[in-house]
């Protein structure tokens, strides 16, 4: 692993973010995680603007997207990502509390790559987040970065 491609975690709730980070900590992938606190920030990150104007170029290896977020909600972010040719290859995993059929259907219709319901139980939550992080961040081979390959 010579390239450190970030995992983007969009989570408006700082506690959820902290718990997710704690889960990833166990597998030492927490340092790869970039946390955004609302949809607008996610889009700023992806388009390298605002506070992320000076970040290193390149797409994240995966985006974990909460559905309900202030400013721009998860589904809107998903829609933007999947309708942008440059961003479309990024795997997007919906990570949400909602088990509603409507949310599931809409997410998949917009092109989500996976949909995970956050379990209430911490151990299950840790396991889920860990496995997701490991699968998408380590095991899964990300799409080639055609526009701006990373060293």
């Amino acid at each position: 692993m010579t390239t450190v491609k970030p995992i983007l975690l969009a989570e408006d709730n700082p506690r959820d973010a902290e718990l997710a980070l704690a889960a990833m900590e166990e597998h030492h992938i927490a340092d790869k995680v970039v946390v955004c606190h609302d949809g607008a920030e996610v889009l700023d990150y992806l388009y390298c603007r605002g506070v992320f104007a000076s970040r290193q170029q390149g797409n994240p290896v995966v985006v974990f997207l909460d559905l309900k977020m202030p400013k721009v909600d998860g589904l809107e972010v998903l829609k933007t990502i999947k309708s942008d040719a440059n961003l479309r290859p990024i795997p997007v995993v919906m990570l949400t509390s909602s088990r509603e059929e409507r949310d599931l259907a809409q997410s998949y219709a917009l092109g989500a790559n996976a949909y995970v319901v956050k379990p209430v139980e911490f151990h299950q939550f840790i396991t889920a987040v860990k496995e997701l992080g490991v699968f998408w961040g380590v095991i899964n081979e990300p799409p080639p970065e055609c526009s701006d390959p990373i060293e």
Partner: peptide
């Protein structure tokens, strides 16, 4: 389904 589960998750998570 969305909002009530979050605090529960936090209680369990932080307790753990």
């Amino acid at each position: 389904s969305h909002d009530l589960r979050a605090p529960l998750r936090h209680i369990d998570g932080y307790a753990a």
